[in-house]
Amino acid sequence: MDIEALKVVVEVLSRGSFAEVARGRGVEPSWVSRTVAAVEAELGFRLFQRTTRRLSPTELGASYLAKVGALVADLEAARDEALAASVGATGLLRLTASVAFGARCILPLIPAFRALHPAVRLDLVFTDDTLDIVAEKIDLAVRLAPEVSGDLVCTRLMPTRYRVCAAPSWGDGDGLGGDLARLASARCLRLALPAFRDRWLVRDATGTVTEVPIDGDLLFTSALTLYEAALMGLGPALLPLWLIADDLATGRLVDLLPEHDCAATQFDTSAWMLYPSRAYLPAKTRVAIDFLRERLAPLGVTGSARRDG
């Protein structure tokens, strides 16, 4: 049985569509259909029931593909392990992150990563959509959340902290002096997410948490455009420290509540690295995890990433 053909039928089971597999491989759906038909002919039974609207595994197909899928993964893992032992990390690494985190934290590190691992090719998928990591063949994802759940392997990359900030040209340019009423009455810049758009959480030195209602006539769907609007002096914004640390250091932005902790939903939030559960972690994914942890873990404390080679 041809291993590549088996990989195709396993992908069809995962994606549930000849067309989706074809798009991912850059081939015609008819090629995928012929490949599946050839495997079925060699096996002597149907793997999938096909209708005009639906593709589903047969009972025999589901049983067969459950076992074959694990074998295909083991064969790929064995190949990766042998290559890693001889030439180091190699292959295509598909890495996804949000647009803002990708642009600010990951992209500046790419030259150093390429210098260390020249045989690893990168497919950087920066999007604010939550991708299906398995269906999209993502090797490594970075997600920002208080916590993550599901069947994926998850490890914390770094803690994330948020600050309420504005450009010096906004207001007095010297903070709010702890006056939360001023913040509540300000025309704030808001992110178009339910947890971010109508109230922020503020915690003082005693641990007292205040829910501050916010309002404003500017609403943004992108963290990067929200950040740019804050730089323009259009109002206060709640932004992650990893995005604004350099601006706070240079004075382009002012921390309006320096004596307080600030958050949208929870104060204990993090950037997490997620990858599909496998018995063997490919060398390309392992070196990426180690590299990002080394370079970005300090960002959770200092807000400034190491970008040197």
Rank of each mutant, 00 (worst) to 15 (best):
F101G: 09
G175D: 01
A279E: 15
I244S: 06
R23I: 06
L296Q: 03
V142M: 10
R293F: 00
W200L: 05
D128F: 04
L231T: 10
A195Y: 07
A249Y: 04
F45A: 10
W31H: 13
V148D: 03
E147W: 06
M1C: 01
T250V: 09
E59Q: 15
L180S: 13
A297N: 11
P57F: 05
T127V: 07
A115W: 02
R190C: 04
A283N: 10
A195R: 10
D123W: 00
G235F: 04
A263Q: 06
P118K: 09
C105L: 11
I110F: 01
Y162H: 10
A297W: 08
L219K: 03
V212Q: 07
P57G: 07
A279V: 09
A297I: 00
S14T: 10
G61P: 11
W200A: 04
D129Q: 08
F18Q: 11
A62T: 00
R197A: 09
L92M: 00
M273H: 05
V87W: 06
Y162K: 05
R286G: 04
L13H: 10
L55I: 02
G300I: 01
L65S: 15
L60M: 06
L226M: 03
V164L: 14
I106F: 05
I3S: 12
L6G: 14
R23S: 12
D246N: 06
F113D: 11
A205Q: 10
S185Y: 02
P108Q: 06
G16Q: 07
D139C: 05
H117W: 12
A271Q: 12
L144F: 08
R295K: 03
A100Q: 15
G91S: 02
C154G: 08
V8G: 12
L253D: 06
A166L: 08
R306T: 05
L109R: 04
V125C: 04
S270N: 11
L122H: 00
G44H: 07
L13V: 02
D261R: 13
H117E: 09
F126Y: 13
V10C: 14
L65H: 15
D174M: 05
W170L: 09
P118L: 12
P276F: 07
A5S: 11
K137V: 13
R54W: 05
A181C: 09
A229H: 07
D308G: 12
C262V: 13
I110M: 09
C262G: 11
L218P: 03
L131I: 01
A195W: 05
P282N: 07
L131R: 05
A305V: 12
E28F: 04
V27T: 13
T269V: 10
R121D: 10
R161C: 02
T206M: 03
E11Q: 06
A249E: 15
L201Q: 15
R199V: 06
V68F: 00
A192N: 15
V8R: 14
G309M: 06
D132I: 03
A181V: 15
S169A: 12
A19C: 01
A73K: 13
L124K: 02
P240Y: 01
L234Y: 08
A84H: 13
E76C: 04
A186M: 11
G173I: 07
M273V: 02
S86F: 01
T35I: 05
D204S: 13
A249S: 14
H260D: 14
